[in-house]
Design a binder for these strands. Sequence first.
DNA 1: GTCTATATCTAGATAGAC
DNA 2: GTCTATCTAGATATAGAC
Lengths: 214, 214
Amino acid sequence: MAKRNTRELILETSLALFNDLGEQNVTTNLIADEADISPGNLYYHFRSKNDITIELFKRFIVQLEPILDVSDDSNLDAEDLWFQLHLSFELKGKYRFLYRNLTDLSQKVPALDRALKGLFNRERRAASFQLAALEKRGSLKIDRGQRELLLNNLMLALIYWIPYAEILDEQGLEDGNIQVRAIAGVLQMVIPYLASAERREFEHLVKTYLAHLN
Amino acid sequence: MAKRNTRELILETSLALFNDLGEQNVTTNLIADEADISPGNLYYHFRSKNDITIELFKRFIVQLEPILDVSDDSNLDAEDLWFQLHLSFELKGKYRFLYRNLTDLSQKVPALDRALKGLFNRERRAASFQLAALEKRGSLKIDRGQRELLLNNLMLALIYWIPYAEILDEQGLEDGNIQVRAIAGVLQMVIPYLASAERREFEHLVKTYLAHLN
DNA sequence: GTCTATATCTAGATAGAC
DNA sequence: GTCTATCTAGATATAGAC
């Protein structure tokens, strides 16, 4: 039994420490210590510290991709969209250490660099599909140039909302407050381009959720 | 003569290396090597590597603050606003290493943490003043809740546009292309709330600048 | 002010017994 | 699979001569 369990234990411990202290500030000795195993044991399960990071990143991707997997003819209403964004921000919160050091992460491990770019592409495409779905049913109107700029801005919010909240020492990653505000930020970018009915719907949704924050 | 010059040389060399490789991946030996001085000499001028980082950060702040220093009754037109944003993004590009590792930077040096929060506060207030100025002359209309959300989103763009462009391997920090696109992104967030005359003016400005990119 | 040489420390990683 | 002990490399920082 031990093998699988120890490996999992190392990964869980690493994730918690990386999120708390930043990947760069966590040593393999600290991980071993915190997991109550020996450093040697850690290296029996992972060939290097980078391997731990890569494995965590893989798990993040595996969980995020199905959330992003929106087909061209998706037809989500406001509530669905909210729910989907919530899932994605929740996951990003769980693996938030990844989003704090994107450049360093990319520089250090070439495999991560490619994976990250692929991920961002898919996320952008997912957002684009959602806009397209809204356009198709006449809920949204935006010209092509502005659409690209909007997508850039959406990506900024999707990627950086959580690290931004962290810097400001905002509490609420555990209870979901941060996530709610992140989603509100994302939706707020789209709201101005919505037709009046949908606009009211989205505005109402945002207001309602924000009102329930502590 | 030597004292002042060597100190400057160290700072310039450090800045270039930090921007290229990331602060964490630059050793004091590398700085000394690149600057053609000895490691010992470097430590004659700076007591620690952190001191170099702090000094660079101070210089960044000293240059950024006058740009952000917008009084309550400012009355910038679209071109002025563009110019102001350009100055700020240009400076942020010069010191872009700071924006890649905000969390780590804050964690490592408490003094930087306070300074950073202060800076963000001032930047947010500056943005708020600009919105207020537009509102005062009837160019902009937005309700209070949405205003806060918009300010959050503006902050995201102001802080993270450059690191975002870096991850995507976008070229053009030197020739100003990145800056232009960052500004376009920022203005695009405001455009939907503008009255029609100003809206056309801003849209025209954005289109014109973007059209001149390589 | 600047150099060379080196001290100190700590991180990642390995060896080999159990 | 797990441990203890240890190697090695490299980074920050200092000492002391010039």
